[in-house]
């Protein structure tokens, strides 16, 4: 009933301070350092600390980086779209049609996620390869005459692999949002004359929007940062900006440029995320 402000605030802050301190030292400070770093330059083995936009100029104007950045965004957006669209019916099925053993279903959905990430990506390579499971099986069944080649070492493979990797992260938020929908709202819509389809678009979908937005962001943001999947199954035209960031910090030994690329991709993805969040909020708030 009453707010126990003064004493409460002190206790709460005291309690959270160790965790906050850790995050400040280990996350906030390093992130600030990366930003600072991106304004410095690599001078062979030493770092020139004169502030400059040179790295950003290079990051934004070099055709290779532009291509990689565009491709990263394109792949991330496609992966996110595919993942969320594929995940929604599953979440819907679990929430509305599975009556018993919901927890078991949820558990089963998360199990594949606990296979070593590297191995999961590698196994997709095995499945999709020229002599892979998919091709051998389909050849055997006579469904195809010769091995399909368009499924490995390109964008398709990256999309399939990532859609698989992020599935539970897309399903769970949508499922939670659907679970929260008061079922009497749906009965009310029917009672007021909505057909099941109209009802779905007027009630269920808008109310599930927070979950859809959460799923979208949870998949989109880390996807941009993935460099394993493109490297293992993407071939040369599946490479993404993160591979370049990794190269700059590794072999190319140009950390400041890597930092500029990292900051740039974060800013871009941050803006896109904010946009998605706002659009989702608007769509969710308005029940048509």
């Amino acid at each position: 009933m009453a707010w126990h402000f003064d004493r409460e605030a002190g206790q709460g802050l005291k309690l959270i301070s160790p965790t906050l301190l850790y995050v400040l030292v280990m996350l906030a400070a390093p992130l600030l350092m990366v930003i600072t770093f991106s304004f410095w330059t690599q001078d062979y083995l030493t770092i020139d600390t004169t502030p400059t936009f040179a790295n950003y100029r290079e990051a934004w104007t070099t055709p290779l980086y532009q291509v990689l950045m565009w491709r990263s965004l394109k792949i991330s957006v496609i992966v996110t779209g595919v993942t969320v669209v594929l995940a929604f019916p599953i979440a819907y099925y679990l929430s509305f049609h599975v009556k018993k053993r919901k927890a078991l279903w949820l558990f089963l959905i998360t199990v594949p996620f606990w296979t070593s990430y590297l191995l999961r990506v590698f196994l997709w390579k095995v499945i999709l390869g020229y002599n892979g499971v998919f091709n051998t099986a389909f050849l055997e069944l006579g469904l195809i005459q010769e091995p399909l080649t368009f499924i490995l070492y390109n964008l398709n493979a990256v999309v399939i692999t990532l859609a698989h990797a992020w599935a539970p992260f897309a399903i769970l938020p949508i499922f939670v949002a659907l679970e929260k929908i008061d079922r009497s709202l749906l009965e009310a819509a029917t009672d007021l004359g909505d057909s099941p389809m109209r009802r779905f678009f007027r009630i269920t979908l808008p109310l599930a929007m927070p979950g859809i937005v959460a799923a979208t962001l949870i998949v989109l943001i880390p996807t941009v940062g993935d460099f394993i999947t493109p490297r293992l199954v993407g071939g040369t035209d599946g490479l993404m900006i993160s591979n370049m960031i990794q190269i700059q910090f590794g072999k190319a030994n140009n950390a400041p440029l890597g930092a500029a690329l990292a900051v740039s991709s974060m800013v871009v993805i941050g803006l896109i995320s904010a946009g998605i969040f706002l659009v989702g909020k608007k769509l969710g708030g308005r029940v048509r």
Binding site: I16, T19, L20, V23, L24, M26, L27, A28, A29, P30, L31, M33, V34, F37, L217, I218, I221, P222, T223, V224, G225, D226, F227, S242, I245, Q246, F249, A255, G258, A259, A262, M266
Partner: peptide
């Protein structure tokens, strides 16, 4: 802020710590 690493690409976390 504490929950941020949940959505931050791991490469960013890794690179930031490496720089520091």
């Amino acid at each position: 802020l504490i929950m941020l690493p949940l959505v931050l690409p791991e490469i960013i976390v890794a690179v930031a710590l490496l720089v520091m």
